[in-house]
Structure formats: structure tokens, C-alpha cells
């Protein structure tokens, strides 16, 4: 059980219209693991998540969740299979309030967090329960976007740059939340540019460049790879 990956992506290719964006991405995540995709803007990190979720038009390759091929499923089934996607733009529905947004996604499995647990994890959301989706700050939106998939019982969290554009205090809060989720056994695929943030939670790193995975290493090996990271990420 622990050896077979929960999510197995092999040779994933994807296109935006005519342009070929992913050229065969391979990555595997075991149950309970937190894996971070690093890479520069345009390397294909977001596209990888979108291709896994099927939001992208054309894709090829293998995306296996517990041995089931996700590429063949109709799109709405991908979330039902247990993938919780938190997009970069957060995807909060402006016409619904916080609680309605929270209750919107359908339950996909048992074992999701209860609403009380979620509000305990995100006290700000409890305070803002009746606020309209549009009136939230960026940090609150991010927390709501994460909170809403936690309730569904999704087994794997796909997080796209959860720290982007947020204040350091909020980034810290989100980091704490990820640590808590990890302790609860959640499997997380994190896309980040900020590897100082990612190192707190990541068990493993994948490095992406031009639509391919160019390297992968364990979390504790991050320091020995800093020169390559500086090279590839340009930081």
C-alpha cells in the first residue's frame, strides 16, 4: 500500500490550442506525502495541475489514481474520485457568501472535515461567515478555497501557489494549516515558486522546466540543490 503511489502521472502531455505545453511529465505521490513542484513562470506547473484535473482541452499520457485512469473519466468525476483542486485564482464564487461557498462542493468521500473542524482551523472564516465572496481579502479567499475542498473528503489536495500575493503573516498561517493537514494524513501536491515556504512541508521536490520534470529530490536534500534551484528558478 505504502509503496504503490496514490497518484501516478506518467508521460503527461498537454496542449493549449496548437501550442504543446507539457512534454511528458512524470511524477508519483504516495499516500500521506507532500510533494512540491518547483519551477519558473511558464514552466508548466499550473498546466500540470490543470491537466490532472482535466480542465485542459487536449492531453495525453497516464494519470492514475489508485490504479484508476483519470484521463478517461468525464470531468465532473475527477473531483468525485477524490482530487481537491485549489486553483491559483482561488475560484471563490462571488455571488455566494462564505458559508454557501463552503457548502457548495459535493461530498465525494467519507472522512472529510466537519464544518466545525473547518471553522476551528480557519477562525477568520467563522467571523466572515455571512460575507459575500467578493468582499474577502486575498488571504481569506485562499483559506476558503482550501477549506471548501477539505469538507468534501478529497484525498489529495492540489494547491496552486497558495502563497501568491499574500502578506507574510498569512503565508505563515497557511503554512501552519498545511502542516496540520499533513499531520492528519492528507496527500498534497503543491505548486510553489517560494521554496522557502515549501521546505516547511514538502517531503519531496520536483523541479520543472519547459514542460518537463528535470530533477527530483527529497526535502532534506534541498540545501545541496540550492545552486541548481537558483539556476532554474532564477532567484
Amino acid at each position: 500500500m505504502s509503496d504503490a503511489p496514490l497518484l501516478d502521472v506518467r508521460g503527461l502531455q498537454a496542449w493549449y490550442g496548437e501550442s504543446h505545453v507539457l512534454h511528458g511529465v512524470d511524477l508519483a505521490i504516495r499516500e500521506g506525502e507532500t510533494v512540491t513542484l518547483l519551477g519558473r513562470n511558464g514552466a508548466g506547473k499550473t498546466t500540470t495541475l490543470r491537466a490532472i484535473m482535466g480542465i485542459l482541452g487536449r492531453r495525453q499520457g497516464v494519470v492514475n489514481l489508485r490504479g484508476h485512469d483519470l484521463l478517461r473519466l468525464p470531468l465532473h468525476r475527477v473531483a468525485q474520485a477524490g482530487l481537491g483542486y485549489v486553483p491559483e485564482e482561488r475560484g471563490i464564487f462571488a455571488s455566494l457568501n462564505v458559508e454557501e461557498n463552503l457548502m457548495l462542493p459535493p461530498k465525494v468521500a467519507e472522512g472529510g472535515m466537519s464544518v466545525a473542524e473547518i471553522y476551528e482551523l480557519f477562525p477568520n472564516l467563522l467571523e466572515r461567515r455571512w460575507s459575500q465572496g467578493t468582499k474577502l481579502s486575498g488571504g481569506e479567499q485562499q483559506m476558503l478555497a482550501i477549506a471548501r475542498v477539505l469538507r468534501t473528503g478529497a484525498k489529495i489536495l492540489l494547491l496552486d501557489e497558495p502563497t501568491e500575493g499574500l502578506a507574510p503573516v498569512i503565508i505563515q498561517r497557511i503554512g501552519d494549516v498545511l502542516v496540520t493537514l499533513k499531520a492528519r494524513g492528507m496527500t498534497i501536491l503543491l505548486v510553489e515558486q517560494n521554496f522557502r515556504f515549501a521546505r516547511k512541508v514538502a517531503d519531496r521536490f520536483y523541479l520543472m522546466e519547459d514542460g518537463r520534470i528535470v530533477n527530483s529530490f527529497a526535502g532534506h536534500e534541498l540545501d545541496s540543490h540550492t545552486s541548481q534551484l537558483h539556476d532554474v528558478l532564477g532567484v
Binding site: P74, H76, P87, G91, F93, S95, P106, T152
Partner: peptide, 12 residues
């Protein structure tokens, strides 16, 4: 508001 987003949350 956003049909694709509703699909990606798991609604048919």
C-alpha cells in the same frame, strides 16, 4: 458564474 469551475468541483 463559472461553469468550468463548478465542473471541477465535481458537479455534472
Amino acid at each position: 458564474e463559472n461553469e468550468k469551475r463548478a465542473v471541477s468541483l465535481g458537479y455534472r
